[in-house]
Design a protein around this nucleic acid. Structure first.
Lengths: 234, 234, 234, 234
DNA sequence: AATGAATGAGAGTTCATTCAT
DNA sequence: TATGAATGAACTCTCATTCAT
């Protein structure tokens, strides 16, 4: 455990800065071949996703990734480290997808609708729900991991939206005192509890697009009823 | 073993109706002493809460509960059964606290405010957050448990609120087409993502009362801006 | 284990010499009520017989005998002791049944036939086969028990028969040099391997009477072909 | 696990046909090194033989075999599987030794004598007796094992002998109506109860050769008195 | 005297990790 | 460098035995 703590996610992404500096002959240094690293993570992902952290055995991962046990331990210090790297990769993937969801749409209605659709679809997807469950399942042992995952995935939408709202307020199109709160409110109205229901298994498949559309549409209406310029709410 | 078979969640709360009928001398039947049962669950709770289901060992629970391993296995069939009983107990605790939160308050503002405060405080409490994490961590293996816990705890607020909203609509005080959706929206506005942030460890303690009050107050305003009679929103 | 070794079967049967000497008021002294002792052994027999020594749990015996755990431990030092007492009881039962099987029948043919039938039927019975398996299963831990059981049950027939043969030789009706060997031969010819086949499960039920009759009849013929006076065998 | 599944008794003897095809470098595949497998069985044999199946603990076997617990479980699915493999090995050993005991000896006397000596010596050996006790001790839980062991070991002699007797009858050298019964009779006469006495511990060492010789000699005489051509018995 | 709830050592089995090849 | 056989601590669960009632 002490060893694992040295391996904070921050350092993980730095591992590849110059992978082949030391091995010009083509032979990769131990634990420095990005393709093999990817191969291992890909196998680990399949196993972790389907049974969770504790129930996943390193043997399963070995089999699924098609590499030997020893090789995994060259690339990752231990099971937790491997799991952390996997979550970190997912994190990066998500951040990219949401980043530009609010950029260009001119009418506020459409911009918010698009944003709400993207975020809700993403968060209720099988992929994300499974990842969340896994992360939460080990959050006692790896609290930083859960936090980082959250900041990257659901919370990231909040950051983007808050910036957007502030710009709209500055431009006089919306009247919001607390943009922090308003951003959070909008996100939650759009999801209307679907994330919770998916997490706990009350909904056992991602909601249909029509249902999401209806929910997000209503969310935009509620939000504008509260924060449009004419209305003097709060 | 016959005693243990009564441990299905449904019957858990009924087990203790008349515990001393058969044992007037004070000696309790095997697996039927509510105090000892409570003692075991209490110890199990401490261990499960702090490290999660998988990382908790029966030996730890033994030590924490102050009973022997054999005794635990008289009261509970196995580790999952013990965990289930613990979650079930938490579930019951919640249901009771929320049930009557909307009954008597006359002005809608106050009623919704009280409800939002109760629900948000409850769901963001250490107790509930830890329970949720545990349940989500094993939801692959015990999906019914997660579902039951959810329906009882966060979802239960939804049922109560939906009934309240329907009564207000009938009495002409609110104008809501889809009370199902509106109830879900209100709950999420009141929490404004606090449950998520608590779950993932972004907030590492329950939010202060002032913060909850501010958030719920704003939530009520947004909700009324959208659904008050005069306003013709949706 | 050291305690159990003090409890050789020999002493077990002496326990009842004067059970009520010390308790004239009717209340039996601890571990001295023969009826309760019998009740315990009867329950133990059902359990041991059906699953064997190791697989039988004291709880099962408790249930089957209808007495409490503590009571069993008043009457018997431990599980081995209880098992020993049970086997000892079976032993005594058997000895009685075979003892007089060769007494009165005048013609040698009939006498041997009757004896062979009795012995073979007895030894191939479910009861005896199960007892043998149990005893053999623990013969490493309780070697004296197996030996005593054997001497009483299968070997006892040998003693009786040998005496009979010696009398016949003295009376000039048979011509046998080694009555010890002849007695063993006769017994084995009559069983023709049935005991082995039953023990190992090749025959899963006691052989039918007709089959035993045929076998014993043949056994008598073979025996007389070898040992009748006219024939000069050996 | 896939390797362990090959451990069905039928395939056991075929496992080692070409053990080093895949590992020319000397490194053996998991669960496929015959030497290690033998080492484990050898250790297990010592433990099982001395205390029986139930009383033998995997820890004892670990210690006796000089391998770790994990290794045992690579080679064998579980305790029963290991025990089964051990018994199976003993079984094969026996079959080989008896198979050709009656082939070439011309005079019937000598052929039967040789056969009787081989079979009796084998069955009364420490090895076989201990194996029988073990097998019988678990015959409730593993009935097929006991049956297979029996068919291979003691019963196998019967099959061989019966074939021999039938050939002698066809050639007019013996006069037997029921060769099945006669074969069983001969075997039992030759052993004259020695197997029983050894099993139950009445004889605590294999009988001396002189004693077996005397017994088998007498057995052959008795058998021929009954079944020689001139004599019209049965 | 009889009870049976409680004990806790020890059972079989798994699996993250190591290291000889 | 990559492998995967081997390790052994730790797991859940059982049950002969004890002793307060």
């Amino acid at each position: 455990m002490s060893a694992a703590e040295n391996n904070t996610p921050e350092t993980l992404t730095e591992d590849f800065d110059s992978p082949d500096d030391r091995c010009p002959a083509g032979r990769k240094a131990a634990g420095e071949d990005p393709a093999k690293r990817e191969q291992i993570i890909e196998g680990a992902k399949r196993v972790f996703m389907s049974v969770g952290f504790d129930a996943a055995s390193m043997n399963d991962i070995t089999r699924e990734a098609g590499v030997s046990k020893g090789t995994i331990y060259v690339y990752f210090q231990n099971k937790e480290d491997l799991f952390g790297a996997l979550i970190e990769r997912e994190r990066n993937r998500v951040v990219r997808s949401i980043k530009h969801a609010l950029d260009d749409h001119e009418p506020i209605d459409e911009a918010l609708f698009e944003f709400g659709m993207t975020l809700t679809s993403h968060i209720t997807s099988d992929h994300t729900i499974r990842a969340m469950r896994m992360v939460l399942g080990v959050s006692d042992r790896m609290p930083q991991l859960a936090k980082r995952f959250f900041v990257a995935s659901p919370e990231n939408g909040y950051t983007v939206l808050k910036g957007y709202l502030e710009r709209q307020v500055q431009q006089g199109r919306l009247q919001i005192e607390d943009t922090d709160l308003a951003a959070r409110q909008f996100i939650e109205i759009c999801m209307a509890g679907m994330m919770k229901r998916r997490l706990f298994g009350e909904m056992d498949a991602p909601p249909e697009r029509a249902y999401i559309e209806k929910t997000v549409t209503s969310g935009v209406l509620v939000f504008r009823a509260a924060y449009d310029v004419k209305t003097a709410t709060r």
